[in-house]
Simulated scan of single mutants.
Amino acid sequence: MDAQVPLAAGTPVEVHGSRQGARRSHLGLETVFVLAICLGQSAVYSVLSLLDKLTAGPPLSHQTTSLNNSVTPDRPWLDLAHQLANNVFLAAAVPLALYLLMNVRRPGSNPWRAIGLDGRRTRRDALTGVGITAAIGVPGLGLYLLARAIGVNTTIAAGNLASQWWTVPMYVFAAFANGMLEEVVMIGYLLTRWRQCGWHPGAAIAVSALIRGSYHLYQGFGGFAGNLVMGLAFGWYWQRTRRLWPLVIAHTLLDVFSFVGYSLLKNVVSWL
């Protein structure tokens, strides 16, 4: 009888540990599935795009990557419908990630507050977002120009919509959709889930940043490096503050300046 006591006493601990491991495994698979329908999928196609560019013949610096293109420039109403649909579906993974955080092993009583997407510090978040924009934007532009100069990046044509009354608002909408998608999924969702899976914070930030860099490889190696650094900086900031709105705001502003700035200056500034 005495020999059976340790087994009986240990059984609940083993069961608890087994259930904990199963929950972590399920959460890990959940992140794989979410990435498979959004940015992870984009990373795969981005690698394929880079391979195509590298094997096409001309050096990367002699190639152009065109973003925000008109689909039917001769029919503005249909082009607007295309742009709206593209950007709405682009950000479709955002409500999915938020739904999962709210309904599957919630990170706290208020998941919005847990990832920093609540409205408690609106003014401070906005000002911080503007500051991050300046801190990331100027060095990022310098890195892009350097990468293009040494031949490891394509020329980025960031804004190519036909000139219509809705052109600038659509650039802003696209920028916000990008900012919400990348920061909610890559920072708020993934870093939360991977923490719940028992990952070391540094490892979670590094993997998230690598994925972020990889889905920008279609631009070239400069796009990869710049977004890798951005991912590391954003992940570090979020781990310290748990505030996501400043990162969404900064990302949105960076894209607005890129899209609108390029469209306005492409025929004026030669180095664009």
Rank of each mutant, 00 (worst) to 15 (best):
D255L: 03
F176H: 03
A233E: 03
A43M: 13
G108I: 01
A162Q: 13
D74P: 00
P169A: 08
P6A: 09
L191C: 11
A22H: 10
D118T: 07
H82E: 09
G28R: 09
R148T: 08
Q4Y: 10
A233C: 14
A177D: 08
R212A: 09
Y99E: 00
L191N: 12
W236N: 05
N267W: 01
S214R: 02
V47E: 07
L146S: 03
W238R: 12
L60W: 08
R212D: 01
E183R: 08
I187Y: 00
I211W: 04
M1L: 10
Q4K: 11
Y189I: 12
S46N: 09
V94Q: 01
I249A: 06
P59Q: 11
L253F: 08
R212K: 08
F257Y: 04
G213C: 09
G108P: 01
N153F: 04
M102K: 07
L232M: 14
L145Q: 10
G213H: 08
T241W: 09
R105A: 12
N87W: 13
G151L: 09
N87I: 03
V88Q: 08
A233P: 01
A3S: 14
S263H: 15
A174K: 07
L181E: 05
L101A: 02
A175L: 07
A97I: 04
A36R: 04
L80Q: 08
Q41P: 00
I132H: 05
D125E: 10
V34W: 02
L272P: 04
G129I: 06
W236L: 14
L161Q: 11
L264Y: 06
P58K: 12
W194S: 13
N153L: 04
S208T: 11
M180N: 02
E182W: 06
Q83I: 13
V88L: 15
L29H: 02
P73C: 06
A134E: 00
L190W: 03
V184T: 09
V138E: 00
A157T: 02
G131A: 08
P107W: 00
V44D: 01
L146P: 02
L127F: 15
L247Y: 05
L29W: 12
A250F: 04
L145C: 00
A209P: 04
I150H: 11
N178M: 07
G159E: 07
R123V: 15
G40F: 05
G119L: 13
A206T: 14
I150M: 12
R243V: 10
R24P: 05
V130Q: 03
V229N: 03
D125Y: 11
S46Y: 07
S208P: 09
S214W: 02
D74V: 04
A162I: 07
V71K: 08
A91H: 06
M180H: 05
H82M: 13
N227A: 11
A9Y: 05
T252W: 12
Y144H: 04
R212L: 13
P139T: 03
T192R: 02
M102A: 12
A43E: 10
A175C: 07
I37V: 15
Q196G: 12
S258G: 10
W112K: 01
L96G: 02
V138N: 00
L27M: 13
V269I: 14
I132D: 02
L27P: 06
M102T: 03
V207D: 05
W165G: 11
V138C: 00
T31L: 14
A43S: 15
A114S: 15
I132T: 05
G198W: 04
G202A: 13
N160M: 01
W271Y: 11
N68A: 10
S66P: 00
W245Y: 05
